[in-house]
Amino acid sequence: MSQIESVLTRFKDNQRQHLLPILQEIQSEMGYLPEEAITLVGRHLNLPTSKVYAVATFYDQFRFSPSAKYHFMLCNGTACHMKESEVVLQEIEKCLNIKAGQSTRDKLFRLEVTPCVGACGQSPVLKINDVFYPGITSKSVVELIEAIKLKEGKL
C-alpha cells in the first residue's frame, strides 16, 4: 500500500471536513503533495480534483514538489516585512543561487516565503525545518548557511 493510501485508510468516513487533515498527514509523511495525492484524495472524498487543488494551493503550508533536507521558511508577515526580511531574502537567494519557491539542485536547500508565522516579537524570523531563528539578519543568515554547508561537506 502506498503512503497516500495508508493515510486515507485512517479517514474511513469520507467526509469532506477531513480534507485538510488528510492533506497535512500526507505531506508530513511524504514531505510534499504529489499529483497522485490530489487525485486520490479527490476520489476518496468524492470531490473534484480542482477543488482539492484549490484548497491545497490556498494554504502556504503545502508543497507540490519534493522538499529538501533544509527547508527555509522566511516569514514576510507585517512585522518581519517592516524589519526588512526582504533584505534577508535577497541575501539567501544570492547565497543559495535559487529564488523563493525553488530548491537547490542537490536537494539540500529549499527556500520559501511564508505569511506571518506568529512570532512577531522576534522578527524577522527564519524557520529551518522545525527550528526558529529569531532576529535574523543578512549577516547572520550567511553564517547559518555556511555552517550547514560545512556540516554537509559542501564547502
Binding site: S50, K51, F58
Partner: peptide, 8 residues
C-alpha cells in the same frame, strides 16, 4: 468543476 481558484 473543471475550473477553480488556484493560489491566493
Amino acid at each position: 468543476s473543471t475550473f477553480d481558484f488556484i493560489g491566493k
